[in-house]
């Protein structure tokens, strides 16, 4: 696969198999491979329900695979940002963000001060006292992003983070993510079903087969140039996706 051998690898998933449920077990991952170069955005694109989210759970360490290996270079644990903002409705924006620091053992008052900083970083200064339901979808996702920042992990797993937003807010969030990423440079694995989103944000795009999932091809966005979207679409169709 064409990624420079001099690049450091942040995540390496090798031939992971996983079946879930008991009766009968359903194969979700069938030999999934993934290589995510450090500091890059690697998008996984595939049909819904194919097992992309489960692969993220495996990388996050929430689910142990039946076989295969997952190696991450991260000093801490990877942090996951789900599709719905997953903010706690009973906590203010500040306290939601502060949870990331509290869970690392930071005392609450310090955690709040850190949270205020990150809330300002994602452009939400002045909204710290608001409860999530008083914020728009885009603002809540900014809040989730602030929490992800405060987790201080160098691996971010984004599970269709903007899938529930309208098109305008989504492109706004793309700009926010790009701006944040230029400063922090985490390794990002982005699960999406939106080709335009993958091309706009990712350095390389992995095309997933319908479940049980494997990665069937890899497209370097910079190498493919203006043909990237077309190349991804062709791979999806070759994998049997009705795209």
């Amino acid at each position: 696969m064409p990624h420079g051998s001099d690049t450091e690898i942040a995540i390496r998933v090798d031939d992971v198999h996983l079946a879930l449920g008991d009766d009968p077990p359903l194969a979700v991952l069938a030999g999934a491979d993934l290589v995510a170069p450090a500091g890059e955005v690697t998008a996984i694109i595939g049909p819904s329900g194919c097992g992309k989210s489960t692969l993220l759970d495996v990388i996050a360490g929430l689910v142990t695979p039946d076989s295969g290996s997952v190696v991450t270079s991260s000093s801490g644990r990877p942090v996951l940002m789900p599709q719905r903002d997953a903010l706690m409705p009973w906590r203010t924006l500040r306290d939601n963000v502060a949870a990331a620091a509290e869970l690392r053992g930071t005392p609450r008052s310090d955690a709040r001060a850190l949270a205020d900083r990150e809330v300002a970083h994602v452009g939400l200064a002045g909204f710290g006292d608001h409860y999530p339901h008083a914020l728009s979808g885009g603002m809540r996702q900014r809040g989730a992003l602030a929490r992800t920042l405060l987790a201080e992990s160098d691996i971010w797993l984004l599970d269709e983070p903007f899938g529930a937003l309208d098109a305008l807010t989504r492109s706004e969030m793309h700009r926010v993510l790009v701006a944040v990423r230029e400063q922090v440079a985490p390794t990002i694995v982005l699960v999406t079903h939106d080709i335009a989103e993958a091309v706009a944000i990712a350095d390389s795009v992995l095309v997933a087969s319908p479940g049980p999932m494997r990665i069937v091809s890899r497209v370097r966005v910079a190498d493919a140039g203006p043909d990237a979207a077309h190349e991804i679409l062709t791979s999806l169709r070759a994998a049997g996706v009705n795209a």
């Binding site: 644990r77 996951l80 940002m81 997953a86 706690m88 869970l103 797993l157």
Partner: peptide, 17 residues
């Protein structure tokens, strides 16, 4: 919300938390 539990677990939340 299972997504909420998933998110806080990756932030390091114990079952008790």
């Amino acid at each position: 919300d299972p997504e909420l539990i998933r998110a806080v677990r990756t932030l390091g939340a114990s079952p008790g938390w």
